[in-house]
């Protein structure tokens, strides 16, 4: 709450709200996220160990690696969704603009508003209309924009998610009636509507067809200007297409997941230092 009231006015003071064809105004301030020595346990079993990673502001960071190496768990730690799972524990720090999100003063609900998340499977709220879905995050924090303010916000968010032109006639239909790819973009719009500083995406395209995947990848590139994006993906081409930085997670047999190599996407794919990285990105295992 405190944080948001700090960020939102800054966004509103932004000069001249500008012609429609250029909707990509900077309305949020992207923040850098730093994971420092993060470990995680499920029911006492160590699943990731001492992962440190810097996710630079306004950049897209891709987390790659085979299944079961802790990428998704790591991602969920970044916005305090990890602790929702029963039996989940963690160690280490996650710094958002230098502030530990696990600090005693931090509320998980507020942290999650600042660090939004898009899930693997599209999960719009089926009982809400497209419009209400976009506004749901605000509703949860007790805000109810009305009239033109609401319409503008819905249009802006749907536009940023690359969905507005497809659904502008259907804003009052239920969110579950859209196609899979549209649903996922609706979830992105919903996540952006709370004006987060960071957007986490957990394999956002794995349940989608190629053309929807392409649309979402474009969206990712576009929103990266104002939101730091962290994306988990299995798809090497996707990582190469969308990300600025990459981190490769690997887990040995019965060993927790770790980062094997991190760096700029170009380096990881063209000039990997670790042999395992080279094997993985060239599809020799995993």
């Amino acid at each position: 709450m405190r944080r948001e009231s700090g960020a939102a006015p800054a966004a509103l003071e932004e000069p001249a709200p500008v012609p429609a064809p250029a909707p990509l105004r900077t309305v949020t301030t992207a923040s850098g996220l730093v994971a420092d020595g993060v470990s995680a346990w499920f029911s006492g079993r160590l699943v990731i160990e001492s992962v440190s990673l810097e996710m630079e502001a306004s950049k897209v960071t891709a987390l790659i690696g085979p299944s079961g190496c802790g990428k998704s768990t790591f991602l969920r730690i970044l916005n305090r969704m990890h602790e929702v799972t029963p039996g989940a524990e963690l160690a280490g720090r996650v710094l958002l603009d230098g502030e530990d999100i696990y600090g005693p003063e931090m509320r998980p609900t507020e942290t999650r508003r600042r660090i939004a998340m898009v899930f693997q499977k599209p999960n719009p709220f089926p009982a809400m209309t497209v419009e209400d879905n976009v506004l749901s995050g605000l509703k949860f924090s007790g805000k109810r924009p009305r009239g033109k303010e609401k319409d503008d916000l819905v249009e802006e968010m749907l536009t940023r998610a690359g969905l507005f032109s497809e659904v502008k006639a259907r804003l009052k239909t239920l969110g579950g009636e859209l196609s899979g790819g549209q649903q996922q973009r609706l979830c992105i719009a919903r996540a952006l509507a709370v004006r987060p500083s960071v957007l986490l995406m957990d394999e956002p395209c794995s349940a989608l067809d190629p053309s929807s995947t392409r649309r979402i990848e474009e969206t990712m590139r576009e929103i990266a200007e104002e939101v730091t994006v962290v994306v988990v993906t299995h798809n090497m081409q996707q990582a190469q297409r969308v990300s600025d930085y990459c981190a490769l997670f690997l887990a040995g047999e019965n060993a927790p997941g770790r980062i094997v190599e991190k760096g700029s996407t170009k380096d990881i794919f063209e000039n990997p230092k670790d042999e395992r990285t080279s094997d993985y990105v060239h599809g020799r295992f995993g």
């Binding site: 346990w41 524990e89 509320r107």
Partner: peptide, 13 residues
């Protein structure tokens, strides 16, 4: 470093 840290899930009154 590898002692789990207790996370309080819920602070909200």
């Amino acid at each position: 470093m590898s002692t789990p840290r207790v996370v309080t899930t819920d602070h909200l009154f």
